[in-house]
Design a protein around this nucleic acid. Sequence first.
DNA 1: GTCAATTCACATGAAAGAGACCACGGTCTAGTG
DNA 2: CTAGACCGTGGTCTCTTTCATGTGAATTGACGA
Length: 410
Amino acid sequence: MKGVRLKGFFENFLNKEFLFSNKQVLQSNYDPESIPHRDQQIEQIANILGSSLLYQKPSNLFCYGETGTGKTLIIKSVARDLLATAKEKGINLEVLYTNCKLKNTADTEYRVIAELIRAMGGEVPKTGLPTQEVYRIFTHFVDSKKQLVLLILDEIDQLVAKTGDEILYTLTRMNSELKNAQISIIGISNNLVFTDNLDPRVKSSLSEEEINFHPYNALQLQDILNQRAKEAFKPEVIEMGVIEKCAAYAAREHGDARRALELLRVAGEVAERNDEKKLMIKHIDVAEEKIEKDRVLDIISTQPKQHQAVLYSIMKINEETEEIKNKGESLFTGDIYELYKKFCSEIRLRPLTQRRVSDIISELDMLGIINGKVVSNGRYGRTRKIALAIQNTTKSKAKETLEKSLGFSK
DNA sequence: GTCAATTCACATGAAAGAGACCACGGTCTAGTG
DNA sequence: CTAGACCGTGGTCTCTTTCATGTGAATTGACGA
């Protein structure tokens, strides 16, 4: 029985007329041939880094701009071209790329350096060595021959927020200790004001050159989407207005091209799954909802137990206040903590202190699951006002996920 | 009525502890020739 | 004699607690008109 059904399913799957010709093109790690509307930045970067072809240390470079404005893509692509040219000319150039946001890989001082060493082909234990020792190994590697090293630190703001700016200080200062080699640092940050709370010495040396990546506007997004869609989809499957709508959506979200491409891809998948012959505007709406839902559910299910318990308390209280239809009533840290403690005893979870729960709440806020705002109620204290930022369609599913993961028997 | 002081209910910071992970060097043990 | 097992020490890292300090406006109460 089952086998027959499955077989039919797969046959169906194969006979289906696919909308995509090459879905990869819409994936975020895809590297396009050309990058529209970024000529100026590319030229600037190429100019700055070009000096490495003369064996001169390029200035440290600092790129900033919102997510999805092409920072990483451009830096990587310029670096690759540079590397190719350097190889032709027989110049020792090493490009090391690290994304400082990757959990458990490069989000601390030790790990970033360890990661860089690995990128150069070294071996470092994940933990156990003193950080100084790792630095020593790193310098040894870098200084082993005459070369220029380009250090690309992506999402550098995340790193500094977590671990402070010592690593940058050490790295920028390292050149004076190197005999053979020279290193240049390329920092990439989403945060525009990130440099403000940096040690002034670090700040000045890190941003010898700065490049701003302004967001794409709707028209530019359309260009990008069109360019990619031409490769990704079969001809004539996209209805009029689809690209425009995708672009408009993303433009609203500070011109995030990654967002726009994802939207287009998911919309395509939705259409395909529905056996549609064409990608229509309505699919975009579905896709947007789906993306949001997946995002939220993904975040929720990967949170630690304690975070889930806190979130569950918030959802519960939110439900109750909504039932009473008392819109003036909002959620405050204290109430949540009380309920949270109650749940903890119910599911045999060791309750954390209010201090910690307060932090967890702000972490959830950062993730965009809830909206928190610190308000002062005068005589009645100062607290965080919290609202759930999950769409109603996702709520029940989210609650279900939480209950399952927390082990509520009901 | 006006003004500064008070007060609440947490927010926010800093430091330090617990416990997991790990490297390294030294010591012990059992197996080998 | 040697490879491997087994410590103890010292390191990183995450999550957490403890202690301390900060904070914005409603409230209070003294003051003067």
